[in-house]
Design a protein around this nucleic acid. Structure first.
Length: 425
RNA sequence: GGAUGGGUGGCCGAGCGGUUUAAGGCACUGGUCUUGAAAACCAGCAGAGGUUAAUGCCUCUCGCGGGUUCGAAUCCCGCCCCAUCCGCCA
């Protein structure tokens, strides 16, 4: 959410910054609503001031047994006149804020211009792209021949875009999540947090998923929303609060399921478990003072990269261009892992600095020496568990179709060092 | 889901139609005193918004939303949350 004062102070500059994000903003309409709202609010406050004075006068007059009929008549008339303009004020404010709420965060200066992923900028790369003496298989082929990635039964239970994991494959998936949480909590200073998967509308509004992207999110019959990522509940954990600035940064991590309707993704990644309606993700969220968020973004990126490095998975980091960033982000790094079967890099993590954009929507502040300020929020996958499983399968595959277990995951696998064919039935 | 009792500033806590512009205490901050500290004393101490060149002035906020009234922390209605008991349940 943008500060209305930023628009009042420099409408042209604000509009230009929006258009860099590919958003069209009618600042004249916003400012017209704002001016009218301020006019009505000021008039109302003056009327209220008079009403308060009258009530005091009446109180004093009654104590001395004076006649109050005239004063009461004036107060009654004033009250009747105010009713309409009060609802006008509420309507004007909500119209104004409605126009602002759909505007994306503005991009940092060092974010490249551009409309889509072709304008993203390579930041760095890590690891050798492996060469295989045979045609490397995709994860779904490996999983199906092992018998432990089961898309048939998943479709039976839930339709398309779901996966059933059997035996050692399920354990490897769990091992990945445990490994990531252990790494972030014991080495990166994040506090593990268990959060609900069903949240109220305001949580998704605060994160920026609503009001614009409601069709991507599942909603229950009880007006709860299924989280598309734990970024929302983690970032909103201290909504409406004023945090002690000395206790920042606050670093939180959670493993949750994530639910996405994937509206508009028809035909993309239909094979395998790359794009699911339900998947697990380990998320990192940091709340920082405003002067620390840039440094925190670099740190968070390193924490996500550490996961892939310890798993020895080759990857690269891209700086997303203005047009490829999510709604709430001011700057985003995407972490892309190499998939030998796909012969392509695929996103496995996205680390963003949202600056004060989400905190304004959430009313989340901190006390600094200079006064109260909005906290800066950052979020990053650390990393997507399902896609990490895909990456392990494709990178650790062997010619006979078996898959080695990465060294760091072996303590979590009860002695299992490779995935072999399992007969499930 | 049912019953009862509660929700007042950072915390405790009074108030239960009109000198409450929310008493008092604790905590916190500054000052006086002191070699320093403690104590004591003095002062300050919520947030959001409007308005102003500015000092200021004003409005709103006693869980949330309505209502009654000239006037609501206080009365009425609805909802939320907390506690306890019952029911149900992993």
């Amino acid at each position: 959410m943008h500060d209305i004062r930023a628009i009042r102070d420099d409408p042209e500059g604000f509009a230009a910054a929006c258009s860099r994000r590919g958003a069209v903003v009618d600042t004249a309409a916003i400012l017209a609503l704002d001016a009218e709202w301020r006019r009505v609010v000021t008039a109302n406050q003056e009327a209220q001031e008079r009403r308060n004075a009258l009530a005091r006068e009446i109180g004093e007059a009654k104590r001395t047994d004076k006649d109050t009929a005239d004063l009461e008549a004036e107060a009654t008339a004033l009250k009747a006149r105010m009713a309409d303009s009060e609802s006008d004020a509420a309507r004007l404010q909500s119209e104004r804020d409605g126009l602002i709420a759909v505007l994306p965060n503005l991009a940092d200066a060092d974010v490249p211009d551009g409309q889509d992923e072709s304008a993203n900028r390579l930041h760095r790369a890590w690891g050798e792209i492996p060469s295989f003496s045979y045609d490397a298989q995709e994860h779904w082929a490996l999983g199906e021949s092992l018998g432990t990635l089961d898309f048939t039964r998943a479709a039976l239970l839930s339709g398309s875009r779901f996966t059933v994991l059997h035996g050692a494959m399920a354990r490897l998936h769990r091992a990945l999540a445990s490994f990531m949480l252990d790494l972030h909590t014991s080495e990166h200073g994040y506090r593990e947090t268990g959060v609900p998967h069903l949240v109220l509308e305001r949580v998704l509004f605060g994160a920026g998923q609503l009001p614009k992207f409601g069709e991507d999110v599942f909603r229950t019959t009880t007006d709860h929303w299924l989280i598309p990522t734990s970024e929302g509940p983690l970032a909103a954990l201290y909504a409406d609060d004023t945090l002690d600035g000395a206790k920042l940064p606050l670093r939180l991590t959670a493993r949750t399921s994530c639910f996405r309707s994937e509206a508009g993704a028809a035909g993309r990644d239909t094979r395998g478990m790359l794009r699911q309606h339900e998947f697990e993700k380990v998320e990192m969220v940091s709340l920082t003072a405003e002067e620390d968020s840039e440094r925190e973004l670099e740190r968070m990126l390193s924490c996500a990269e550490a996961v892939l490095q310890k798993l020895e998975l080759p990857h690269r980091v891209q700086v997303l261009c203005c047009g490829d960033m999510g709604f709430s982000a001011a700057k985003t790094y995407d972490l892309e892992v190499w998939l030998p079967g796909q012969k392509n890099y695929r996103e496995i993590s996205s680390c963003s600095n949202c600056r004060d954009f989400q905190a304004r929507r959430l009313g989340m502040r901190y006390r600094a020496q200079e006064g109260r300020k909005f906290v800066h929020t950052l979020n990053g996958s650390g990393v997507a568990v399902g896609r990490a499983l895909v990456a392990v399968l494709e990178n650790y595959q062997q010619e006979n179709g078996e898959v080695a277990v990465p060294e760091v995951l072996r303590p979590y696998m009860g002695g299992v060092e490779k995935l072999t064919s399992e007969s499930v039935l």
